[in-house]
Design a protein around this nucleic acid. Structure first.
Length: 505
RNA sequence: GAUUCCGUAGCUCAGCGGUAGAGCAUCUGACUUUUAAUCAGAGGGUCGUGGGUUCAAAUCCCACCGGGAUCACCA
């Protein structure tokens, strides 16, 4: 490169904050193409085939055989052998080798190709053959630059290992790491299955607000925001529950929503500040009806993502999602694990003493139900590897669930546990407006005692109940955790394309 | 938020008081039916940032920034 062309390149080059020799080399190649009349960013390309389909279609094509089939494919240049004579082209479905030879391409086209780089997106038309070395290949008769890449790809063999880079620049992770592609493909399959299944079951998909005047439907710390024109504080929703029940009041008997919830809490391998939840409400059924529905959704999702299999490896465990799953009450499970029978220890101080004795600290002001739940969380939760319905959750921790008809300390409810994680809760929805008001009052008292996650009183929701909510069963499923289980992902950040991270650099 | 580990070339990683290294990628050349192509050569670094200790710091110490893991809260 002489001084003239170098100056020209620098003058025309867009501003790249972190430019380096690799980027400069690619920009120089871009200029060389432009100097030869190539539009490096053209508008379209007619794709007739994808790599995956070709690999499948020609699986039986014998070694050394050249077909007469002309195909047009497009994708990213991933590797380059024999000075560009062989290129591995990668599209969404897989890889295929491109062969560019002077026997099939005019010299000026071959010369242009010398300015192609790894990472470029190109379109190729050519003839399908299998090389003597056994590689399915397209003999290029025409090649087009579709988008010039001016940044170097990560290491072609190891891909990206730096997890921070994976999360911040997910596109690189997806380009380089097939496992990540597979994870997000499966995520999509799972969600598609759920939509299709619920539609077939007669459920209507609805959308409710994410901006709430009063955050409700669960106990969690909300994000607070502000609407300028209305000059009004608004919370990002922590759950859609109360709005979905309003729709059931309105007469929609089977509704569901798949959407984002926002919780202003800690971040961990199981928690992202925004996460995707499925919530379902069905009129005229109760929590028992929800158990069967829960099982069919999850078992179906597992099969959809695993070619009909119900057994899935996760870490060191093999989890079998085949329904039905066992059903056991929370108190029973605690009793089996610790010997403590909280159903016989309904006195608050006796319950607190028993919990402390078993090594579970009790926060001052805890209710009986909170103590039972704390012991369950500490002693039992982590041992529930295979899917199970943990039923009859204490009323103190379920302010929106119907009281259990046989024991006023409990509710008609269950939570599904898999791999030691709560996948989702479900209950017979409390539809008695007087009881609901009393439960909210209890929450307010807890709030005054310093529990800043306790629920706020939602007067408008109670009014809706006063018009009449039919007997209703509801359930929620944490989609991200379900996807983790079905993709053997160790962190929720591996199943959320763009997880929440700190502002960087 | 607490504890702990990590941050070296575009990427993957060595080096852990004494002149900043390798592979891939890039550039030059050779080769031209390859498979992480190969061969010869070259360029590429504020060792996260800022202080300190030392004759000498990528290396030891402190603070900060970013990330991972564990714990706490939660799904």
């Amino acid at each position: 490169m002489n001084i003239m062309t170098k100056n020209k390149a620098e003058a025309a080059a867009p501003v790249i904050a972190d430019s380096n020799a690799l980027i400069e080399a690619k920009i120089e190649n871009l200029k060389q193409l432009q100097a030869r009349g190539v539009n490096a960013y053209p508008y379209k390309f007619d794709v007739t085939h994808h790599a995956g389909a070709l690999q499948k279609k020609y699986a039986e094509l014998a070694i050394g055989v050249t077909t007469e089939d002309v195909v047009s494919i497009a994708g990213r240049v991933m590797s380059n052998r024999n000075s560009g004579m062989f290129i591995d082209l990668k599209d969404e479905t897989g890889k295929i080798q491109i062969f560019s030879h002077k026997d099939h391409l005019p010299p000026e086209e071959l010369e242009k190709m010398s300015y192609y780089d790894l990472g470029d997106i190109i379109g190729v038309t050519g003839i399908v053959r299998r090389t003597p070395r056994g590689e399915l290949t397209v003999n290029t008769t025409k090649v087009e630059m579709l988008s010039k890449s001016i940044r170097p790809l990560p290491e072609k063999y190891h891909g990206i290992h730096d997890v921070e880079l994976k999360y911040r620049k997910r596109y690189l992770d997806l380009i380089m790491n097939d496992e990540s592609r597979e994870t997000f493909r499966r995520r999509s399959q799972i969600i598609s299955f759920i939509r299709k299944f619920l539609g077939e079951e007669g459920f209507m998909e609805v959308e409710t607000p994410m901006l709430h005047v009063i955050p409700g439907g669960t106990t969690a710390k909300p994000f607070l925001t502000h609407h300028n024109a209305l000059d009004m504080p608004l919370y990002m929703r922590i759950a859609p529950e109360l709005y979905l029940k309003r729709l059931v009041v309105g007469g929609f008997e089977k509704v569901f929503e798949i959407g984002r919830n926002f919780r202003n809490e800690g971040i961990s391998i199981k928690h992202n500040p925004e996460f995707t939840a499925l919530e379902i409400y069905q009129a005229y059924t109760d929590y028992v009806g929800m158990m069967g529905l829960f099982e069919r959704i999850v078992e179906g999702a597992v099969k959809a993502a695993h070619n009909g299999e119900t057994k899935v490896k996760y870490g060191a465990h093999e989890i079998d999602f085949k329904a039905p799953w066992p059903r056991k009450s929370m108190a029973q499970l605690v009793k089996e694990k610790t010997g403590i029978d909280f159903m016989a220890l309904t006195d608050l101080s006796a319950a607190a003493l028993a919990a402390e004795k078993s090594g579970v600290p009790v926060r001052p002001g805890s209710s009986w139900g909170e103590i039972v739940e704390a012991v369950f969380a500490d002693k039992v939760e982590g041992t529930l590897i295979q899917p199970i319905h943990v039923t009859d959750i204490p009323k103190d921790v379920m302010p929106l669930a119907k009281t259990h008809p046989e024991n006023a300390l409990l509710t008609e409810s269950f939570e599904v546990y898999i791999n030691g994680w709560e996948i989702g809760p479900s209950f017979s929805e409390l539809n008695d407006p007087f009881d609901q008001r009393a439960r909210f009052q209890n929450q307010l008292e807890a709030r005054e005692k310093g529990n800043d996650e306790a629920m706020m009183l939602d007067e408008d929701f109670i009014e809706a109940l006063e018009y009449g909510l039919p007997p209703t069963g509801g359930l929620g499923i944490g989609i991200d955790r379900l996807v983790m289980l079905l993709t053997n992902s160790q962190s929720i950040r591996d199943v959320i394309a763009f997880p929440t991270l700190r502002l960087h650099k």
